[in-house]
Simulated scan of single mutants.
Amino acid sequence: MSAAMIPAPGEPPGDWWAATGFEDPGGDDQVATFCHDLPPGLAAEAMRRGQGHADRSVVEPWPLKAWPDVPTRLLICRDDRFFRPEFMRGLARERLGIVFDEIGGSHMVMLSRPKELAARLDDYARRIHDS
């Protein structure tokens, strides 16, 4: 898991970038962009093991006609240098119409703050289960 895109119904992922007005932060240092809060060895390993996307995943439109009527949560990474928080906050309001939560950490929050992320996800699951 890393920070996620928020698709619009029927939107191909390849179109998401222009449709949302995403501005690439630029720069060639992927560690500085994606893993700046990881220990150097872990950041290097994450970059080494990074996987591209399946061809289908970047061309096929998101198949739903609308967001499902289910509890939805968005956790924005406050220290993400790729999907910057201010961009994601606006996108969450526009596309999901929900109040979002925030967590410290980079784009790779699952590596930089695994315990905090797991606790948040567990809390979300418990709230849904208890409601």
Rank of each mutant, 00 (worst) to 15 (best):
S2Q: 13
S2Y: 10
A3S: 15
G10Q: 09
P13I: 01
W16H: 08
W17K: 14
T20I: 02
D24V: 08
D24N: 15
Q30A: 14
F34S: 01
H36S: 13
H36M: 11
D37G: 11
L38M: 14
L42G: 08
M47E: 14
D55K: 11
D55N: 09
D55P: 06
S57Q: 14
V59E: 13
P61E: 10
W62T: 05
P63R: 11
L64E: 14
A66I: 04
A66D: 09
A66C: 09
W67V: 01
P68T: 12
V70H: 11
T72K: 13
L74W: 05
L75C: 09
I76W: 00
C77Y: 01
C77H: 01
D79T: 07
D80M: 04
R84D: 01
P85S: 09
F87V: 02
R89W: 05
R89A: 05
L91E: 00
L96V: 02
I98F: 05
I98W: 04
F100C: 06
D101V: 03
D101W: 04
I103E: 02
I103Q: 04
G104T: 06
H107F: 04
H107C: 03
M108L: 15
V109I: 03
L111I: 03
R113A: 03
P114H: 08
K115M: 09
E116T: 06
E116M: 07
L117C: 03
R120P: 00
D122T: 09
D122G: 08
R126N: 11
I128H: 08
S131T: 14
